[in-house]
């Protein structure tokens, strides 16, 4: 279990890093919780590795103007334990706390995780429910897209060669919003067999706003806007979640079939919504 040889670069600034990766020939090491095992298994054979771990300007969490900005190299532990995230986007902190295990959360970064786009990763459900924007830069471009556009397919994102995730921008959750991340972890890997992130707002005893992001079920994370609309128009939770994942492809493996995953998405969406409602004021 020995990786193949590679050249290693550890730029100290973002500008330096972007210049290095401009050719698109470099593999980016952003924590390495997925990449390093793949390299050890020799499933990943990069010749040039650029480590973003020494660029302080990629590691920050700050709230301004109603937007929580999270630098791409913030670790899961940073996010899980950040007072700002807990105050402004508690859903994201909750999802971060479900990732892997303590050691993985200490090393893994949000930028690395979403760029890898594992279909069973935890963040995407929360990012979709939070309507997060993702800022992507390269040596000569700077664009910001919706999380929903970012996740294209299994292991496939909107990132072009030479681009990296710079920052996540999540709108600050309103006071009084309810949230919940419900996860069915794989007993061995800890990856989400299904993960459901929800946000709700109540008004007059009814659901005024609902956001549902789902990961693990299909090849890419998705938001179930039909269920959201049904909830917002007064449909009761059990019924509104009945059709979650309809029309979406569902992953199937030794542990859980596609049908079961779809069923779990529905059950856990309902549970997450109920928890979120109890948390909403």
């Amino acid at each position: 279990m020995i990786p193949q040889p590679f050249d290693y670069y550890a730029p100290a600034t973002l500008r330096e890093a972007l210049a290095m990766i401009a050719s698109g020939e470099h593999k980016i090491l952003a924590g390495g919780m997925s990449l390093v095992p793949l390299m050890k298994l020799r499933l990943a054979l990069p010749e040039h590795v650029v480590d973003l771990g020494r660029i302080p300007e990629l590691n920050y969490i700050a709230e301004s103007g109603g937007v929580l900005r999270i630098g791409a190299m913030s670790t899961h532990h940073d996010i899980e334990s950040s007072a700002a995230v807990r105050a402004h986007c508690p859903l994201l902190a909750e999802a971060a706390g479900h990732i892997g295990d303590a050691q993985v959360r200490n090393m893994g970064t949000i930028g690395g995780s979403i760029a890898h786009a594992d279909p069973s990763a935890d963040y995407p459900a929360a990012l979709l429910a939070l309507e997060t924007k993702i800022r992507i830069v390269s040596a000569n471009s700077d664009r910001t897209i919706d999380a929903a556009e970012f996740f294209v397919d299994a292991f496939t994102t909107a990132l072009e060669p030479g681009e990296i995730v710079l920052e996540l921008q999540a709108p600050v959750e309103d006071q009084g919003e309810g949230y919940c991340y419900e996860k069915v972890p794989h007993p061995a890997s800890g990856f989400a067999v299904v993960g459901v992130a929800v946000r709700v707002k109540k008004a007059g005893g009814k659901i005024a706003m609902a956001r549902i992001g789902i990961t693990g079920m299909g090849p890419r994370p998705f938001r179930d806007s039909m269920a959201e609309k049904m909830l917002e128009s007064g449909t009761e939770i059990g019924q509104a979640t009945q059709s979650i994942g309809q029309g979406e492809e569902a992953n199937s493996d030794l542990y859980a079939s596609g049908d079961y995953r779809r069923h779990l998405a529905r059950v856990h969406a309902a549970r997450a919504l109920r928890t979120a409602l109890t948390r909403a004021s």
């Binding site: 298994l41 499933l43 279909p119 794989h186 492809e249 992953n251 493996d253 030794l254």
Partner: peptide, 13 residues
Amino acid sequence: NVGQRLVETTARM
């Protein structure tokens, strides 16, 4: 041996 979790999803993709 190690990609079982993703083989089917990947093949379909």
